[in-house]
């Protein structure tokens, strides 16, 4: 294992930000720390970077304890939510910074800077001032800057949160490709599950300072460990497994779990109807309970039959 976190606890005075967290990241693996804001995931990331000292527990790299290694000797790259580019340097100056710290000679450095700018899709931006860049471009430069000195591990703290939605989705895909191509070992902090699932090989769900579940995205998505996690992952209705024909005690339903279908086995009455971009969202009463459902046109008051879409169902536990 490349990175190993061994029962890390971080306390500020009386508050415990991170509580007894253990996690490992294998060489070349991308792990996402996913959780609502304030769950301690950023603190954990900063602890790995060496910007916070754990109250107890240890951060190890290839079995070596990093407690005595200061931030600048860890060789962990860090990308902030809002870039934090050096305003007094050009794009190239920013990207070259880590290489200069490593005393890489000029020719190699220049070449590396150009290839990284190409990698993040910013060819020809070398001499621009960073203050003239858009938010998305700034994040790309921040990423190139972090990757340039070939860090052992890249830490990304909500790398896309400051961007608007369309750009975020595009960049998430680009970022996933970049991390794979460079075979980067990375730890990503995010509160957006789409982002986590796009980027990561494994997802660690954090809640109130603890890691409650770790696993591949598909597994975490389909079997959240408890109701709270399921709610965070988009489930808004909880029913016995028998309701959807599954042999588990409880399942969580997402908005897409029920679909209007004339062959469906469940019957209900449409209570409310909302038009979305590419589908209609319905509120359907079944045996006095209201459920969300996706469907074609239907009027309020209509009797409809519903089919279960297992992609929208999460087994709890």
């Amino acid at each position: 294992m490349a990175l190993e976190l061994d029962s890390i606890t971080v306390r500020y005075g009386r508050t415990t930000a991170v509580s007894d967290v253990s996690l490992s990241v294998a060489d070349g693996e991308v792990v996402a720390l996913l959780g609502p804001s304030g769950c301690g995931k950023s603190t954990l990331l900063r602890t790995v970077a060496g910007l916070e000292k754990p109250t107890s527990g240890s951060v190890r790299w290839d079995a070596t304890d990093l407690a005595g290694v200061p931030v600048h000797r860890r060789e962990f790259g860090l990308v902030f939510q809002d870039g934090q580019l050096f305003p007094h340097r050009t794009v190239a100056g920013n990207v070259a910074f880590g290489l200069r710290m490593k005393k890489v000679e000029r020719e190699t450095r220049d070449k590396r800077v150009l290839s990284l700018l190409e990698l993040v899709g910013l060819e020809g931006y070398a001499d621009r001032r960073v203050t003239q860049l858009s938010g998305g471009e700034q994040q790309r430069v921040a990423l190139a800057r972090a990757l340039a000195p070939s860090p052992r591990l890249v830490l990304l703290d909500e790398p896309l949160s400051a961007l608007d939605r369309a750009l975020r989705e595009q960049l998430a895909v680009d970022l996933a490709r970049l991390l794979r191509e460079a075979a980067t070992t990375a730890l990503v902090v995010t509160h957006d599950h789409d982002e986590a699932f796009t980027l990561a090989d494994r997802v660690a769900i954090m809640s109130r300072g603890r890691i409650v579940q770790v696993g591949p995205p598909a597994e975490v998505w389909s079997s959240p460990v408890d109701v709270e996690t399921a709610k965070f992952l988009g489930c808004n209705k909880f029913v016995p497994g028998s309701f959807v024909g599954l042999d588990v005690e409880r399942v969580g339903l997402r908005a897409t779990a029920l679909r209007v279908d004339s062959d469906g086995l469940i019957e209900g009455t449409v209570v409310e109807r909302v038009h979305r971009r590419d589908h209609v969202r319905l509120l359907v009463a079944i045996d006095g309970e209201e459920y969300e459902a996706v469907g074609p046109m239907a009027e309020v008051g209509d009797r409809v039959r519903l089919e279960i879409d297992l992609d929208g169902v999460a087994r709890i536990g």
């Binding site: 970077a49 910007l51 200061p70 931030v71 600048h72 000797r73 860890r74 060789e75 962990f76 790259g77 860090l78 902030f80 934090q84 050096f86 305003p87 007094h88 910074f97 880590g98 710290m101 490593k102 800057r145 972090a146 000195p149 860090p151 830490l155």
Partner: peptide
């Protein structure tokens, strides 16, 4: 000066003295 700017420099391998020279001083 945003503290995270200094932290960014540190994660890129700049020692505290170097951070002062490369970030604080120019700013």
């Amino acid at each position: 000066v945003d503290e995270r700017l200094r932290q960014a420099a540190a994660t890129l391998g700049a020692s505290p003295a170097r951070v002062w020279r490369e970030v604080d001083l120019p700013l």
